[in-house]
Write a protein that binds this DNA or RNA. Structure first.
Lengths: 203, 203
DNA sequence: GTCTATAGCCAGATAGAC
DNA sequence: GTCTATCTGGCTATAGAC
């Protein structure tokens, strides 16, 4: 791969800053309440400049989701290289990471109902590609964990996979954090424990 | 209680129709994408007439949530009168009902991030009152189920209660339904089973 | 590519007649 | 209380100079 020119590097850094700001705002207020003006102000550039980098608000959100999936895939790859771990332990580590991101207020949340956004995402090749990669890695671990009898083989792998994804937007950690009675580690421990308990085979 | 005059009855019926429409639209599109124009069109009256009944869009949503909590309380009361049932069975029935409502597309969903809406709800006495009543009933059943050893006494009742509420907006049933592979009863059965399994005491 | 300024639109809320 | 017509503000997106 060719070295990037200086101008291209500057471009990359700026776009990273934009996507990071979008990620923060999506986590904080969600897609509908996030305004493009805020994003521009957060980055410190004019709104018109934003539109030179990304053609629409939906494209901004899609870029943030791509970034999230890239981070996720990095965590997955890291876990894949841990020697001698059981599949369920790898899953455990990934879900723990997602819960920590969520509690840190860095998990972008998209409304599942917004149709213009859905349209953008299902047309976004890189997004779909990454989503499939993550799903396939996690799916393989789920099947392996079922063979290991760490996860109930009676559960459809599909149900388990969706449940894993759902942990990324579980409202329970937020409720507990809002209560203010418990620290983040305690909350993560409870939610993780409850979740993996639900998957264990009955004896 | 005095008999309602004919005019008052008409008013009641109309307001019921409004709240039912809001409930439907909230379930379908969520608060941010729901427009007051749509509500008016759905009910078949002019938008200005809506504002004679409810002072704001937020008030409309609050009314829908009050209606939901009233229905919930009715289900709770019904379960409270079942003779000889264990507390965990009563909880089971209520969560099942919530999942069925959700799968039927009748569960209004509010964005937890919208601050104008939060402000409205926090200041809404009837809403808070109902929410507390539901919480107290469910909380008592949780404590009882822990004493019965149907729910792990090691779990804070708070964590269990929040997890129960979270089932009402669990995305997993929706994912499975969108997959189109399974019927509603099957989906409800899996989600219910997974959830109550997670609460059982370890042996 | 960056800016200022503004177009264009849409949704929440209101005026005022009946 | 119901309507039609309108106001108002805020938001996405763009024009056009530099």
């Amino acid at each position: 791969m060719a070295r990037l020119s200086f101008r291209e590097q500057v471009l990359r850094v700026r776009e990273d800053a934009i996507v990071a700001a979008v990620n923060r705002l999506l986590a904080d207020k969600g897609f509908d309440l996030m305004t493009v003006d805020e994003v521009a102000a957060d980055v410190g550039i004019a709104k018109a400049s934003l539109y030179k980098h990304f053609p629409s608000k939906e494209a901004l959100a899609a870029a943030a989701m791509v970034r999230l999936l890239q981070r996720t895939l990095a965590v997955v790859d890291e876990q894949a290289q841990v020697e001698g771990a059981r599949a369920v332990q790898r899953l455990h580590a990934v879900v723990r990471w997602a819960l920590e991101v969520q509690l840190a207020g860095e998990m972008p949340s998209l409304p599942s109902q917004n149709s213009s956004l859905r349209a953008e995402l299902i047309g976004h090749k890189e997004y779909l590609d990454l989503l499939m990669q993550v799903s396939e890695h996690l799916g393989a671990w789920i099947v392996q964990a079922q063979a290991d009898r760490d996860i109930d083989p009676g559960l459809p792998a599909e149900v388990v996979l969706y449940s894993v994804f759902a942990r990324a937007c579980d409202p329970v950690p937020g409720f507990l954090k809002a209560g203010g009675q418990h620290g983040d580690e305690q909350i993560v421990a409870w939610v993780l424990d409850l979740f993996f308990r639900s998957l264990r085979p009955p004896r």
